[in-house]
Amino acid sequence: MRDFSQLSEREILALAIGNEEEDGRIYLDMAERLREDYPATANIFKEMAAEESEHRRELLELYREKFGDHIPLIRRQDVRGFITRPSIWQFPKPNIDDVRKIAESMEQETQRFYRNAAARATDVSIRKLLGDLADAEAEHEHRADALSESNLTADARSTEDKHAREQFMLQYIQPSLVGLMDGSVSTLAPIFAAAFSTGDTFAAFLVGAAASLGAGISMGFAEALSDDGSLTGRGTPYVRGVVTGLMTTLGGLGHTLPFLIPSLHMALIVAIIVVVVELSAISWIRWRFMDTSPLRATLQVAFGGALVFATGVLIGGG
């Protein structure tokens, strides 16, 4: 691997040609991945790919004029400190905002590359072209805005943003809510049953910790294996599984930790307060993200929690 500062002008041009070709293909990959859900944004990336193709043509003409027809294979990974690019095809379901940020960072990195390359060039025509391409990359942000105005109308942007919110709901909010509800509600019975039956706060803590971790692992695997996201658009199953498992564990540990307090009476009071906070948070999330009325969300969650809590108390007290 060689440093960028060690490359000759011929090698820099060869690297730039490969860079423009790869960037164009990345933009086309973005367009293809976004075509179905975000057609207006996909058109923007197709036009940006066309611009990268024009840059590559200009570089090829100059290279042929200066060095002939053979272009050495110089890859990004062969140059230390050279700009890197993401593999869009590896993204399970690209987030629209993430893709736009990636495109912006690509233009900024390419601009820095051309600035540095132009500063090192001694040939006037090479220096001029590299400088012009650096200016062109700097203008791409404005060009992207112009493309957005022509392709991404207010209605199209509103539709895409709505779809992005729906994807966020399916991939993160819904699994988080399922996990939090299961962890907060299902662990109530074993924890309070252990507390009332043994009168030992540490024993209740052990039962709660085991129930929370076990439920987290179980729910995580259940969510990950239930749907690969290819048809429902719910995103990567592993991410959903991790989110669900962590939130399930968190929901159970919230009212388990108070049982580290030696006093059973105080531990019960604190645990009940934590349970009220947890159920209130669940009700708020359902109202905020699931379009459930505040009263309905509160009554549904409170009723379910009360049933499970009563079950634990009855079993433990009996």
Score class of each variant (00 low, 15 high):
Ser158His: 05
Val274Trp: 04
Gly254Lys: 07
Leu188Asn: 05
Ala134Asp: 05
Ser226Pro: 03
Leu60Cys: 15
Ile102Val: 01
Thr41Gln: 03
Ala42Cys: 02
Ile88Gln: 02
Leu314Phe: 09
Thr84Ile: 05
Leu133Gln: 02
Gln167His: 10
Val308Ile: 14
Phe67Glu: 06
Phe168Gly: 07
Glu104Tyr: 05
Glu11His: 07
Arg64Val: 11
Val276Met: 13
Ala146Val: 11
Arg10Ser: 13
Glu11Asp: 11
Lys46Asp: 08
Arg10Glu: 14
Met106Ile: 15
Pro258Cys: 02
Glu166Tyr: 10
Glu52Ala: 00
Arg288Ser: 10
Gln171Ile: 13
Ile282Cys: 08
Phe91Tyr: 08
Phe309Lys: 10
Ile17Arg: 01
Val242Lys: 03
Leu213Lys: 05
Ser212Asn: 04
Ile272Gly: 05
Asp3Asn: 14
Phe82Asp: 03
Val277Pro: 07
Thr236Val: 10
Ala195Asp: 03
Phe303Ser: 15
Arg75Phe: 10
Ala204Gln: 00
Gly68Asp: 04
Gln90Ala: 11
Pro262Trp: 01
Met48Glu: 00
Asn116Asp: 12
Ala121Lys: 04
Gly235Pro: 02
Asn19Tyr: 07
Ala121Asn: 06
Glu54Gly: 05
Glu21Gly: 00
Arg288Gly: 06
Pro190Leu: 00
Thr159Met: 07
Ser184Gly: 06
Ser226Cys: 04
Glu149Cys: 12
Ser5Asn: 13
Phe289Ile: 04
Val313Tyr: 05
Glu139Thr: 10
Glu61Gln: 15
Gly241Leu: 02
Val275Cys: 06
Pro175Arg: 01
Asp69Pro: 10
Leu130Gln: 06
Leu260Glu: 02
Thr236Tyr: 15
Ala50Ile: 01
Val243Gly: 04
Gly304Phe: 05
Val313Gly: 07
Asp228Gly: 04
Ala203Lys: 11
Ile96Leu: 07
His163Met: 11
Gly214Asn: 01
Arg64Gly: 14
Pro258Asn: 01
Gly183Arg: 05
Arg75Glu: 12
Asp23Asn: 14
Val274Thr: 08
Leu307Cys: 12
Glu61Phe: 13
Pro237His: 00
Thr244Gly: 00
Gly318Leu: 10
Leu15Ile: 08
Ala210Lys: 02
Gln300Met: 12
Glu141Thr: 13
Asp155Ala: 15
Ile261Cys: 00
Asp155Thr: 15
Leu295Tyr: 12
Ser184Glu: 11
Leu147Tyr: 02
Gly214Thr: 03
Thr298Gly: 11
Thr292Gln: 15
Arg80Asn: 09
Asp123Asn: 09
Glu109Pro: 05
Ala164Met: 03
Ile88Ala: 00
Leu180Gly: 07
Asp37Val: 12
Leu295Ile: 14
Gln6Thr: 15
Ser176Gly: 14
Ala49Tyr: 00
Arg64Phe: 15
Gln108Thr: 13
His163Val: 09
Phe82Pro: 04
Asp182Leu: 13
Ala222Phe: 04
Arg157Met: 09
Leu246Ile: 06
Met266Asn: 11
Glu22Gly: 09
Ile44Val: 08
Ala134Met: 06
Val276Ser: 13
Ile71Ala: 06
